[in-house]
Design a binder for these strands. Structure first.
Length: 509
RNA sequence: GUCCCCAUCGUCCAGAGGCCUAGGACGCGGCCCUUUCAAGGCCGAAACCCGGGUUCGAAUCCCGGUGGGGACGCCA
């Protein structure tokens, strides 16, 4: 029996009720208690790709029910991170939408109403147990090497005891009464997962300060925001049975779940600060291109099913499917990210590259060259040598300063040949008459000079590189002579000749 | 400790019973190109965790072990 295709012609769009296929609604729900972590960014990316692939809606919801630890700055940072990656949201902060508000701190009345409904329906009950008592019980159990579950002390409180507590002003939380039904679901990436409900304690859904816990708010919002697919981190698998139970108690059809594996550091431990950068802001600062970051993150735990590696956002959207997500955790491999970033730098249009490098140049105290054509040509010479945007500052330095510094290693390695100064003077003269001043003629001048003076071209080339850049490495010599131009090239060669003369005079050779 | 998830080169993935002499990419080694450094091209080393089943046939299915990870809060 074939099911009707979804709105985008595929079989994967959500089916709500009997058989009406609707475009999927997915959400990314970060907690603003920290910056946007690369793991969170990848979860957001998978949600976004899924929504775009199926013509669905990507909702951004801020889970700021932890008043103490949440901050507005973190919200800004997360939004900036998502925008930098190009993950635009259809509903959420700043854009609004029909299912708002999108900050949980503005939806507290809904959670309280839902909790009251659950109590009224016999799915939840008031709990007056003090946090101290619960903590003690847990510690005692732990000392015995056992796990402790809430003992349902408040499940059936005698009315007189209850009014006594109320009169005494005892803080009251609300706990969900976990039923004995089996909690099982079919995870899109993991397959069937079943839990024994006896392993789930009666968890708190509304704190004594009348704020919801995560379990309540996430389910209430997913219901009210009509979320069809929950794509989130693996670490939520063990929470899912609680959520399933809540969906049921609330009389709602649960969404489809897809739990994506975690991102680990080189030691296979959960990625954290000691592994290096973990926030997307940090990668941005380090000179990674958003397109490279997206490509890399997409391939971390997901594959299009073939051997493609370099994929544009359009290709990712066209190929994305939840079934392509692998079940195992993935190690964040910076070397591969570096390679990929280099690939994107190599392919970036000159204008865009120049735009991306400009702020870095200014930060380093350089003015962006006024001659755009010249600057683009220079960038083209440098780009195959760059892996990060930040590399361009050092690569470009010799071409932006008035006077180059001679690196000791360059002086030692390439200026030892006999009569280098004389050879360089001859080259300066030859360059003075090269016409036109282009690569073939410059090359002819260099090779011709070497031949006339009976030395190997390499000797002259290396010495000249030191004169022009002060370094042992650079783009091809003929290319850099041309880009520096006749006057600057000749001047730099003559300056090195003088430098060598002074050094000889001081007998330092 | 209990529950859950996972298991292919060092790393990220391909593989959905015969197409596997296990494929691609990063990284690594070599060669080519070459004025250096890159980039690029070519070549190479490198893996199915172990043990039982099922099957004519298993990297692929089942069970057990081992290993790794995650969750066990009035955090999210």
């Amino acid at each position: 029996m074939r099911e009707p295709p979804g709105p985008c012609g595929c079989q994967k769009c959500a089916r709500v009720g009997n058989n009406a296929a609707v475009p999927p609604r997915v959400r990314f729900a970060p907690s603003p208690t920290g910056y946007l972590h690369v793991g969170g960014a990848r979860t957001a990316l998978f949600n976004w790709l899924f929504a775009r692939r199926h013509g669905g809606t990507f909702v951004l919801r801020i889970e700021d029910t932890d008043v103490q630890r949440s901050s507005a700055d973190m919200v800004t940072g997360i939004l900036d991170g998502l925008r930098w990656l190009g993950l635009d949201w259809d509903e959420g902060p700043e854009v609004g939408g029909a299912h708002g508000p999108y900050f949980q701190s503005e939806r507290l009345d809904r959670y309280r109403a839902a909790a009251a409904r659950l109590v009224a329906g016999g799915h939840a009950y008031d709990c007056y147990c003090s946090p101290e008592r619960l903590r003690d019980e847990r510690e005692k159990a732990e000392a015995r090497g056992e796990a402790w579950q809430y003992d349902r002390a408040c499940l059936s409180l005698p009315p007189e005891r209850r009014s006594e507590l109320e009169r005494a002003g005892a803080p009251r939380a609300i706990r969900f009464k976990v039923p004995e039904t089996h909690a099982a679901f079919d995870d899109v990436v993991h397959g069937p997962i079943a839990f024994d409900p006896r392993a789930i304690e009666d968890f708190v859904i509304l704190r004594s300060d009348h704020h919801p816990t995560y379990h309540l708010s996430v389910v209430v919002d997913d219901v009210e925001m009509r979320i069809t697919h929950v794509i989130r981190g693996d670490d939520h698998i063990s929470n899912t049975p609680k959520h399933l139970l809540l969906f049921e108690a609330l009389g709602a059809v649960p969404p489809t779940f897809a739990h994506v594996p975690l991102i680990l550091g080189g030691d296979k431990k959960r990625l954290s600060k000691r592994h290096g950068a973990t926030s997307v802001t940090e990668y941005r600062r380090q000179g990674y291109l958003p397109a490279a970051m997206v490509n890399f993150l997409a391939l971390l735990g997901w594959s299009p099913g073939d051997d493609r590696e370099l994929m544009s956002v359009e290709e990712l959207v066209a190929s994305f499917s939840l079934e392509g997500i692998s079940g195992g955790n993935a190690v964040f491999n910076v070397e591969k990210l570096d390679w990929m970033n280099g690939q994107y730098i190599a392919r970036l249009p000159a204008r865009e590259l120049a735009g991306a490098v400009a702020p870095l140049l200014r930060d380093a105290g350089f003015a962006v060259p006024a001659d755009a054509a010249w600057w683009y040509r220079l960038l083209d010479l440098l780009r195959p040598r760059a892996r990060r945007l930040t590399d361009f500052v050092e690569l470009a330095r010799p071409f932006l300063v008035d006077t180059v510094e001679y690196e000791p290693a360059a002086v030692e390695q390439h200026l030892r040949a006999p009569d280098v100064a004389a050879h360089l003077e001859a080259l300066a003269a030859a360059l003075g008459t090269a016409d036109p001043f282009d690569e073939p003629h410059v090359e002819a001048a260099v090779r011709g000079t070497a031949a006339e003076r009976g030395i190997k071209a390499g000797v002259l080339i290396h010495a000249t590189r030191v004169a022009l850049t002060g370094r042992t490495t650079s783009p091809g010599l003929f290319e850099i002579i041309v880009i520096l131009g006749r006057d600057r090239s000749v001047a730099r060669i003559e300056r090195l000749v003088n430098f060598l003369a002074m050094r000889n005079a001081r007998g330092i050779s």
